[in-house]
Structure formats: C-alpha cells, structure tokens
Nucleic acid binder design. Sequence first.
RNA 1: GCCUGUAUGGUGGAAUUGGUAGACGCUCUGGACUCAAAAUCCAGUGUUGGAGACAACGUGUCGGUUCGAGUCCGACUACAGGCACCA
Length: 942
Amino acid sequence: MFNTKEIEKKWQNFWDEHNTFKTDIRDFSKPKYYALDMFPYPSGVGLHAGHPEGYTATDIVCRMKRMQGFNVLHPMGFDSFGLPAEQYAIKTGNHPGKFTNDNIQTFKHQLKMLGFSYDWDLEISTCEPDYYKWTQWIFKSLYQDGLAKEVEMPVNWCEELGTVLANDEVIDGKSERGGHPVIRKNMKQWVIDMPAYAEKLLKGLETLDWPESTKEIQRNWIGKSVGAQVRFKVANTDKSFTVFTTRCDTLYGATYCVLSPEHILVDEITSENQKEQVREYKKICSSKSDLERTELSKEKTGVFTGAYGVNPINNKEIPVWISDYVLASYGTGAIMAVPAHDERDYAFAKKFGIEIIPVIEQITGEKRENEKLKNGIVAVLYDETKDKYLTINWGDLGGRLFIGGTREENETAIECAIREIKEETGYTDIEFITEILPINHHYYAYNKNIAYEINSTGLLFKLKSNIKEEQQLDEEEKNNFKIEWVDKNIIENEIKDELHITTFKNLLNPGAYTGDGKMINSEFLNGITNKTEAINKMLEYLEEKEIGKKQINYKIREWIFARQRYWGEPIPIIHYEDGSMEALDDKDLPLILPVLEDYSPNKDGSSPLNKADDWVNREYKGKKGKIETSTMPGSAGSSWYFLRYIDPHNNEFLADKELINHWMPVDLYVGGPEHAVGHLLYSRMWNNYLYDKGIVSTPEPFKKLVHQGMILGSNGIKMGKRYPEYSVNPNDIVDKYGADTLRFYEMFMGPLEADKPWSNEGVEGSRKFLERVWRLYTVENKIKDEENQNLEKIYHQTVKKVTEDYESLNFNTAISAMMIFINAVYKETVFPKSYALNFIKLLNPISPFITEELWNMMGNNDTIAYEPWPTYDENKLTDNINKIAIQVNGKLRGTMEVPTNTEKEELIRLAKKLENIEKHISGKEIVKEIVIPNRIVNIVVK
RNA sequence: GCCUGUAUGGUGGAAUUGGUAGACGCUCUGGACUCAAAAUCCAGUGUUGGAGACAACGUGUCGGUUCGAGUCCGACUACAGGCACCA
C-alpha cells in the first residue's frame, strides 16, 4: 500500500518549489505545443467530477510532449465575470470581486491537488482590469471598424433576469439560465456584426480538425443559402418590394406574396377597407413572445393587405398578404409564395383559398427515345364504410393497379376519371374528393411496342352507394381482370407500378411537391428537368431584364453585446450631450468598474451602473457626456483569452506579436460540446478579425478541437441537484483513493468523447492496478539489471500502443495495453530494469504522483517530467510465429501456429491436416481456397 | 419534420478498417495462501446443448454484396444531441 496523501503532497510541493512546469515562452529552439482547456467559471461549489476528465486529457498529452522534447504551453485561468457572483453581490451587498477571488483560490487548490502541469505564472482572470483592458481595447477596435455598433432592434428580453440575451442564450423561447420566459422587445443595443464574418467563419470550418457534429452545428447556425432577389412592383402605385427566394425557377408558380407584419411597406400599401384588419393583426403579432410564435407555428395566420404585386416574369397581378410566418429579420422580410412547391405556402394557400399553380412535375418511370405524349388519369375510389380501395387485378397482364385511362380531347381530368370508372367498374354513384399535382410518367407498352410519356393527374373519389351500370369491356379485358376492394397495406405491398403507387401516396398525403422534376407552365423553362439548370437560366433572365439578381443570405444574426448588469466588462464608450458618441482613448483604458453601495438592478431594467453618478456623468475632451452603462456579455472575455496566456503580463499590448506568431494556433483544445455556437463561434470571429487587422498570424484559433463527454451519475443520469445521492465530488475521491487514481479511472472509463456513467467499483479497480504496479516495484523483487527475451515483444508493443493512443487521445486503450504488460511482467521472474524505468515514463502522464515517486525510488533525484520518452523498435514488435485462423465456408474451425511468412501452399497443406478441418472437408468438393498470409485460411467446400 | 451521431455479454467498453467478435476492467465462481478473514496470487466466466472433444446461435431489426460482414450497401426501429416557419 502506498500513501497517496504523503506522496501527492510531496510532489505538489516539489513542482511548486522547482517551477517544474514553467514554460519559457521565448524559447523558440524546440517545437511548440499549445494545449488548452476551456477555462472554468469559478462557481462557489468548486470542481465537479466532469472537470478533471478534459483537464487530465490535455495534461497527459502535455506531459508526453514535454518528454518528447516539445516546448509545451499549458495554461489555466478563470472566466470570472458572471451571474452567480452578481447575485451574491445583490444579496449581500458585498463586491462580487471578493467572492470571485475566494472561489478562484478554491479552484486553484483543487487543480493543484489533481496534479495538472499548468504554468501558474501564466494564470489569467477575465475580471481583472489588467485583462479586461484588452477586452475593451478589442471592442473599441471593432467599434471603430464599424463591426460593433449600437442599433435599435427587437431583442430577447428576459423580465426575470432583467436583461437582454443573445440568441444562443435562448432555448425554445426560454432563457438558457433559469428557464424564464423571453419576449421580443425593441431596444437600442450594442451588437457585433457576426454576419460580416459569416462567409469566413463558414469557409474556415473546412480547415479545422474538429468533430464533424460541431462543424455541422456551426454551419447550421451560420445558415448560408444561395438564392435570388426579385423585385415586385405594387400594382397601381410607384412602390415596389424585393423578395428573397432560393427557388427563382418556380417564379411562374408564384400566386401571392407575403410581407412580414413589421415590413415598412405594409402601412403604405394597405387598401382602405383592409386597414382595420391589418392594424389588428400587426398588434397581435407584436405582443407575441418568441415562445408563442414557436408554439403557434403549426397553424398559419395572416391577412390580405388589399394590394397586388406584379409578378415581373409574366406581369400577372397577385395578392399581397402579411403573415408572421415570414420573418422581418431574415432575407428581405418579404417572400413570393409558390404554394405548389413549398410546404408552408401550400398550407397557407389551402387555408385562405389562394390559387395553386404547379410548375414542376414529379417524374416517375424511365424516359426513353421517341416517346408518344398523352394525357392520362389515375383514379382511386375509396369505400369509407369498409375502409377499402378499389383496385383492378390484371393478373399476368400488369398486376394490381388502380383505374387508369387516357384523356380524350376537350375532356377534363375529372370527366375522364368518372367515365373510366364507369366503363371499367360500373360504379356511377361517386363523389369527387381531391386532385393532386400532375405527375410526369414514362413507360413502355410492350404489347404495342410504343414508349409513352404521360401527363397524369391523380384523383380521389368516394363511393356513395353500390349502384352499378354494366361495364364496357373488350374481350381481352373481360377475361383477365378482376375488380377487388382491398385495404391500404395490400396496396402498399402489391402495387408495383410506380405511377400508381406514387399517385396513391400523394393522394393520401396531399401537399406541396418539393422534389425535382420537369418544369411546366413556365414558358422558357418548360421541359427542363435539372433544378440547377432551371435556376441558372432564370437568374440569367432576371439579371438581363434587371428585375432580380443573385443573392446570398445567412441565418446568423448580430451578436447582442450588452447586458444590463454590473459584473461584466464596462463598454468604453461615452455618449455626449449633443447625441454623438465616442470610444475612450487607449490611455483611458481600462475603464474600471466602480464600486457600488447596492448592486441590485434598477426598476426600469437598466444597468446597476446607472447608480454610480460620478462614474457615469463626466466631462471628456471638454464635452459633457455619460458613460455607457451596459456591460459586455459573458462570452466577451473568453473570446480571446487564448491569446493572453501567451503573454499575460504585457502592459503595452494584448500580447507580443512575435510570441503570438510563434505559439498560435492552439494545437489541442478540449472542452464540452455545449459551447458549439457560443464561445466557439465568437472566438473564431474575434480571431478572424484580429487576423484581418494583422494582430494574429492565423485566422483560426483552434486547430484541433475535442469535446469530452459528460460523466454521469452511477444511475446513468446527469449529476446535479436532481439526484445528489449519485453525484461525485472529486475531493472525496482524492481523499479516499488519491488524485492518481481519479485521473487514471476517468481516463479508463471509456472514450473521451462519450458520456459515461460513474462506477465506484471501477474506481476501486483503478486503484488496485496502481497498487499492483507499486508492489511490482517495491516488494516483488523482479527488477534486475538483466535482459528477459520473454518480455521483449510485448514491451515494444506496449510502448508503441501507448505512444500512439496518447497522441490520438484513446486513453482507455492505452491503459488497457499497460495492464496487459503488467500482467505479463507478473508471470516472469525478471523485469529488466530498463523496461521498468521506461514503463514508469509511460504511466507518468496519467498518474504523475506515484510515478514521480517510483522514479525517485529507482535512484533518480530529479523530476521525471523532462526525461526522454521511450521509443520502440519496429523489428521487435513481432516474433516469427503467427497464429493463423482456419475457416471452412467462412466458419472458424481451428487455428494453428506457423512461422511468419509461410507460403500459401504450405499453409493450405498444413490446414487440411488439422483433425477438425479434415472432418469438415472430407467427402466434399473443394470449390475455392482463400489464403491471406499471416492471417487466415478459408476453404470453401460444396 | 430536417440534420448529425449512437446501438456489441450481467456490466464499463475493445476489435489492426472486410479476416479468430467480446481485448482490458468490473461483477460473479473456483483454487492457493491464512487458525480465520481481508488483501494478494492463480484459473474460469457470451447464450444454449454436451462429462468432453465439439456443435448451434450470437454485435438494435429486416434484406443485400462477399470465400468471409460488428465493420460495406439498402430499408427500418430506438435513443441522444442540434436545428426548427430561415423562403
């Protein structure tokens, strides 16, 4: 048994006293490695079980890299502006800084306890004026470049929290923190222009070694869509509006337009007799919260403005409506509606009885040369009383079908269907229900040797009674076909004809056709079947006639960059009495938070900073003005902290450019996936901006990103307030088993990225392994200055496996390899000293305390941290005996051991001699023999 | 609804990318040591049948490709995460 408390204390002190992990940031002689953890918010409760997971992962890589000769930058700091400290201040009247600093001390103590090899000289804290001076400086720069601005806009206002929230802080219309309702409210707001960087942020993703899921979330959030702007004139006026569409190819199918209720043109174009309705509708919309808008999204609402827009493609006048399914904040706040090919427009048109014009026909069957064109119908007759559909079973002549027919001249689809139903089945007492969008079908009539192209209309009828007339069938038909009423699943299983089954599915589930197909009703586009071609052709036309142009839109919105709170970075802007404003000069930064008597929010929701009269009201450059009182959001300080670590004590600049150039980008960044669209997007934007300014040397800050999974309670559920009995406190584990065991266990639980349930038995197992290692070195008496051939192969394999697995962050399998090695050593009487020393190095990154102690006990005086990493010999990874699997018909029937690189023929010969193989092949014909040397033999018999 | 993942013993999880499924750990069982227990060491542990050799089955479901599929292809189911009137 080893004394964890004693050993861990000893080495914590040793590392502190010797500055073991201090990084010489100006030493450029070695290759650099920058590993970064997402720094914590120092909450009152200290580290939770999840923190050590990600932190241990980076620590392992750093410790290995140091031993491999890299100059490693591995810093830690604190994201120390935030709401809990503010709430504490409101409650107690104390300054939140004190509370925050106490918590930071607790965190630091715990982090040291866990043995992370941070260089504490590089520690930063975002709430320190030395730090936020530069946060303010970057903001100021953004402001001066027009990327940070104050605008009047609808914002996410949370009454309970008394502040504005960014889009990523609102989830399903509720605040991310606390789940309070969020409403839309017009306010003057500081924002950062994220859309200006949308394209760069999107492009940059391609260069990053990040989880695909996170990149996808960011792509989604950026939401690029390529389309066109088209200008619609308002009939009988000189006004016009512009719509955004990604499907300009469907312009001929536009049968109405919709403006968002907030669109500026609404009041101007509304006709006299629609004014009241429009006013009423606008009122309803503006009072709706985001939550209500989301919840009510199923049912479309809207009103007609009385105005008509002119479709520029054919000068057709179409009604202009307003509806809140069109968002003011996206595109132009106006759309052209193509109900035939857009689900939302379809639902709206159906509800308000607006015309639907199809311009794309769904295609079924396969197109052939020299097709003969005809118009046809497919009619489905439904008997409600029996819940069955009428089908015709043609037997060998064509299987089961609905009623089909060819339209005669001057005959409508309905007339044709009624006629065909009567002729083929005799039913006459039927009621027309619905008709679907046309389908373009291709088929080949073998009996007539003709290829057909049919424009087919699908129709649904209901049987009212069984009244029948005599069928009119020719001889061939009479003999072969049977009328059968069948239910839905028979149809789905037995009707193979693509036209008929597609018609049936569409009839049962009528709606817009959003797939690809053949253009119809579209003049110069008619007949085109390629969507891109149609879009491009239309774009060309629009641009030529100057009625529209290509346009790209992004979903990403401005980052709302102000909070009505105290505990955040003050915005370094002064508003003068004359209405102008200005950023403070560099020499007046940092703009330091004033101390207040009372930190509670004001009743009007304005920032508590309003209470600091002397601080707010001042004369600056000879003019009277007020300092901006809202503060920056939580993600401000974390958007550039990775730069400050490089040079945290620099008073001249945010960090020395030469150092940034050397150390950036971050080589490995580990943190939770919850920051996918917040921190990880904002940091990228700031870094891209600083790159454009020539301040940083790479556009992307984080080259490789890995998300650690969540550590769940032993009940498989997230640890937390809900199930405190299943929660684990790292302090308790360290107290009982030691930090080495905690680190080891969390790495052995499973893949870093996966969510994993805690297991106390698993912790015991980890501790047991460390004990086993300890015993091997202290009591077993096997370590000798001798060689042992039996261990050579497995030793080299272990070095290789562990090295590669650390590099790729597969710590669980690295540990497994070390266990296999130790198990093998236990079976031997001699553990060569060189192996013993190098094994300590392999284990050191995971469990640093015990390994430092063992290293010491093996006669070394200094830390193991910079000892050269073990290497392996490729030639010793295998010996010359291979175990070959023998299969018969792909089933394992035996194995044999043969020398490496035994010839194929020899392998087969030996394999056939095995008793069990002989049994399985005797009396059978050998069809094939597959031999993969050094792997497998497979004999195929019949 | 759309997008992205995931699915393997009693259990946490392995599997060189198409080549002996279940490494390693936990649990459980047996043995050694001990007066005894704990600790430790050794052995066994997918299911079913068999004393055993061995055989059949087995990686969410159904189908396919292949000499051979956890791995590739197609359809589906369940769970997790993200997006959700984005025109």
